[in-house]
Nucleic acid binder design. Structure first.
Lengths: 200, 200
DNA sequence: GTCTATAACGAGATAGAC
DNA sequence: GTCTATCTCGTTATAGAC
């Protein structure tokens, strides 16, 4: 299988790099093969050689993005011991994307969801499910060891965090203001941590 | 001025109705004049008579949407006395949009922000500013009368609420699941209210 | 004021040369 | 494996008839 191969074709991954940035800044319906071709100095036809259709390109984009994200989560699990540090590192993942003046790839695609081909829809849904599952695990451990205090099912709180982060990125875009994102997400984390008694 | 006129041309407002739904479900780059024309049984040329360009149509869409939203906020202020009811009514505004299987118009446009003509960008930014300003007022009153308890500047918390709601709508789309939205937003409100001591 | 007709362009995609 | 050439269709927009 080509997709899962460790050795990445150079052109292929450069195409993905440019396409990824275009989706994250302009949306899947906001760029064309011509945009990628021009930037890479190749022809549109060459693009079609690597990705037969725009739908196939989109699918590959999500898969690579999701794989990298999963790797980042695994890295956090290895690097950070306590729950609070994990949560902060998780928020930083989103912050890094925003600092690069991008929107989360899957957040962007969630907005355009109704226009996407079925395979892309499934991949987007899976991305959010995976994120929620990871967060759920962190929340459960945090609640168990007393680091976190919150009401309701951990899965629901996980969803709230994901949507809070996605929304903070979304709304920060028009104001191109990273500090808005940081203020919102700090508040989000703080409302979970057990020592929030001092906030009033 | 035609825009501000109370008497709306029938065709014009029907065009806006269809275009609004298309933007909220597919995005500004996800539909064309042909889509509107077909649904209304008129020609594309007729559309160009009412809205010279797609940019002009988009601008009119945001203005009407923002005006209605402002009217809804004014209605809440008249109808609801206490702060908590105001907040719940505000959340319901977003919930109604989601139940209609739509995304917030300006949330959608925030995602596509980089592709929008300048006048539309300004209108989108203004929408969020107005929402934050209204919420800020509610939060300040709530904190003053003891109904709400939260840390940090009211404006920042207002931003957190707006982005939390927008994000909840966004992430609910792939799962077409209104309950996810409700769970997230309930949690959001509860973390603001003073009686949350019982939640742990 | 609304339509017919069409312009002018860009989109995604394909065939076949090299 | 990449390019040239081209195709077909859909896009926004315009000119001018009615």
């Amino acid at each position: 299988m080509i997709e899962g191969s460790i050795v990445e074709d150079g052109t292929r991954s450069r195409i993905l790099d440019v396409a990824e940035r275009l989706v994250q800044t302009r949306g899947f319906n906001g760029f064309s093969y011509a945009d990628i071709a021009e930037e890479l100095g190749i022809t549109k036809a060459a693009l079609h050689y690597h990705f037969a259709s725009k739908a196939a390109l989109g699918q590959a984009l999500i898969e690579r993005y999701a794989a990298r994200f999963a790797a980042s989560l695994a890295a956090i699990d290895e690097r950070e011991a306590d729950v609070r540090a994990k949560l902060e590192a998780y928020v930083d993942l989103y912050g890094d994307v925003l600092r690069a003046e991008r929107m989360c790839l899957c957040g962007m695609l969630a907005a355009e969801f109704r226009t996407l081909p079925e395979p892309m829809r499934e991949a987007v849904s899976r991305f959010f499910d995976d994120n929620e599952a990871w967060l759920q695990g962190v929340l459960e451990r945090g609640r168990a060891d007393g680091t976190l205090r919150f009401s309701g099912p951990p899965r629901e709180v996980a969803r709230t965090i994901v949507s809070g982060l996605e929304g903070a990125m979304l709304v920060a875009r028009p104001h191109h203001d990273v500090r808005r994102f940081q203020a919102s997400t700090r508040w989000l984390i703080r409302s979970l941590t057990a020592d929030r008694a001092g906030q009033a």
